[in-house]
Design a protein around this nucleic acid. Structure first.
Lengths: 152, 152
DNA sequence: GTATATGCAAAGGGTTTGCACGGTT
DNA sequence: AACCGTGCAAACCCTTTGCATATAC
């Protein structure tokens, strides 16, 4: 389902959308950058077509997401990041101390996902989850400190 | 550690912050509303003190969070929601179809949290997690439909 | 040819910041 | 008295929207 494979075109058409250069460019950009904010995707797209506008990126991502070609996740306080759906499903571990983002296979969450379904009837879109906490490096570094607790 | 108990005052002072009416009001508001966006917290605070400004809410929430009296979580695309820390730790299940938010005890995530720590050395702040997917009602309703896939 | 998609520019929501005044310690 | 905290207003980032033009079908 990469732009090269052509499946993306049918995905669009089957939902009544048109196939445009911008949509291909955005999809390619999302695949090249494995994680990308709209802003970053714009920059990547503009390497090939400088005329493309930010609002087109937003509108295109919405379309691509609605036909199932990309997904987004909210990583921090800022802009969301988009991924191609052919990426392995993964979960973002966001370190609140250093801001680092690690991706881990979605499988680690299986027991959790299953429990949510059994106990609450909730079907989890696990790739959309982002998990906050402290990464290994920061735990080692500041052994139990809370970086954001320190005043200026 | 509710405003009534007085622990909040020491929490502030021990971190070098001053005790002010606004900080008490915000803390109380966060406890009254079990989930609250800055905007909602402002409204609650203004029921008691109409002069308080939104920027004070933001600055105060940041302070209260840094001393461990409140936490926030990102529930959807919009504003974050804040909770008092004396609430039972919980996870938000956000239904992407109907927008409903359910809280479930953080305990369901224990196996997941443990796995992240064992496998990746990552210490998860579980109360900060928000989980997206489809709630029971929407699964029953639209049996497998994707609400946001339908065009206008 | 017609409806959809794009570019542009302006507006909108949410959040942060500079500054002077007022309150806490 | 000294410094921190607050209110106010402006600035900022991210995202959405209206409209005229260009494009895919």
């Amino acid at each position: 389902m990469s732009p090269a494979s052509g499946g993306w075109e049918s995905a669009l058409r089957e939902h009544g959308y048109r196939v445009t250069p911008q949509r291909q460019l955005v999809l390619e950009a999302v695949e090249v950058l494995r994680h990308g904010t709209p802003e970053e995707i714009l920059a990547e797209v503009q390497r090939h077509a400088s005329g493309v506008n930010l609002s087109t990126i937003y509108r295109t991502l919405e379309v691509l997401e609605s036909v199932g070609l990309v997904t987004h996740a909210h990583i921090g306080h800022g802009a969301p990041t988009y991924h191609a759906v052919d990426e392995h499903p993964h979960i973002h571990l966001v370190c609140d101390a250093c801001g680092d983002v690690t991706s881990v296979p979605a499988g680690v969450a299986n027991p959790f996902v299953d429990a949510l379904y059994l106990d609450y009837g909730f079907r989890t879109d696990i790739a959309h989850v982002s998990v906050h906490g402290r990464c290994r490096a920061c735990l080692a570094d500041g052994a139990g400190n809370n970086a954001d607790t320190v005043r200026g």
